[in-house]
Design a protein around this nucleic acid. Sequence first.
DNA 1: TTGCTCCTCACGTCACGTGAGGTGGC
DNA 2: TTGCTCCTCACGTCACGTGAGGTGGC
Lengths: 264, 264
Amino acid sequence: VFTIGPFSRLAGVSAKVLRSYDELGLFRPVWTDQASAYRYYSPSQLPELRRILMLRELGIGLAEIARLVDGRRDLAAALDARRDELERERRAIDRRLAALDIRFEMDRTASPIDVVVRPLPAEPVATLRVAAGGDVEAAFYELEVRVRDLRRRANRPPGAILFDDGTAEIFVPVRGSLPTDDRIGFRRLEACRAATVLERGPYGRMGTAQARLERWIGSAGYRRAGETRVIYLQFGAEPELRLPRAYLVDRSTDFVTELQVPIA
Amino acid sequence: VFTIGPFSRLAGVSAKVLRSYDELGLFRPVWTDQASAYRYYSPSQLPELRRILMLRELGIGLAEIARLVDGRRDLAAALDARRDELERERRAIDRRLAALDIRFEMDRTASPIDVVVRPLPAEPVATLRVAAGGDVEAAFYELEVRVRDLRRRANRPPGAILFDDGTAEIFVPVRGSLPTDDRIGFRRLEACRAATVLERGPYGRMGTAQARLERWIGSAGYRRAGETRVIYLQFGAEPELRLPRAYLVDRSTDFVTELQVPIA
DNA sequence: TTGCTCCTCACGTCACGTGAGGTGGC
DNA sequence: TTGCTCCTCACGTCACGTGAGGTGGC
């Protein structure tokens, strides 16, 4: 039998690891001296320890390993599950690498792009349809006035949903529900995950930004799962609409707009 | 300006994260009320926060991000470095997946294989050459007697280095240095990383185990960087050699032998 | 006025590494 | 006998999540 030091060198792990595994009940010395608390190990224990180390190298947690080695959990099933997890981890890394690559590529030709994937909360909104090429500003004015007069304006930013045919549905966040008519609708935007990017400045560059976001999504291995949304975070509006002041700026160079593409 | 809750929903992070980033000096509210300690944020801060979140999504640590956003560290260089790290992580995951695959494949045909990659410490040894097909047992007896009489036997296990031409060099660990002669040599085995596997039972199955370890190394994307070593952890020996009792067993079914292949 | 939100601790996560300070064994 | 090894705490790592217990603001 060996004390912990020589045995740890034989096994290729630190003495601290052996002490932890003893305390966890995962791997115990063949004998512990009651007086000195010295731990003694035998080389015949190495196969048992080796099994534990192999599972650890696969990234399985110690609590799970404890269940596997004493048979409370099925080894084959756990390895299958771990394989799935590893494949998910690999996809996550590949996405990060793709995000880096597309950033390098774009930095040469355009401004940097900071795409972030994040959850969007569900929200109740008042909506108004705008035809392709229609007057979005006038539509917002109409919708905001209506929501203001109903005293239902929520503090969140307004936005628009862009459809493939060039039409749009602009929306203004509301509290509670809302009466509808033939022009103004009420619905709840669904919660989802979305790839999002912020744009600064006037709306002229929105088309380019949208195209870059689409390309980013493709490169990162995501797939679109809904219509693009535009959120106006810093913008201009008439004072009589009495919008939350936090959103309002005077100059179009200070505009901040978020593009959101729901993804699967 | 918004309190922390509405702003956190706008940004897609938790309030707790915003409080941490404030404390870290990474991202501060536009204004903090001295009396209530309430934090107030503006939507115009979103681009600044977005940059931080993008870097976080790449797996960069917050301390590093702090250095990047205030310009103390070069962004392009950091992203390059991060890309290298991500590629290393991906290789590590690919190796784990390969290890899982080869395990599934082998479980159908043979006993499971628990390969562990670990560092081997350097060690001083007495050595003796054995011709292809030579008497390994007799050679060990000669070498152990010699080391015993010189009172240089270290407590570590004996082993052998296998060469491609079928010859071997058996070794016995020693303390300090050793006089050499035309039969018995002295050298220091170099420290290295090795893929290792334990075999239980008699030596007849060593050839198969060796072949499986070689295949594992190939599948996991490693490359051999030295001769295969064999370490005898549980074995039989004559009492007069006075070897450490911890290594000795009576029955060949209790033998434990480690195969080690140094890797790059 | 009543909830709701905000505040500051404080602990848990995970598998160790790295001491501090003290004692046993060759 | 002198180092060396062993022992048990205890803290640090990393970026949060999740309470507890209390207070401010519409």
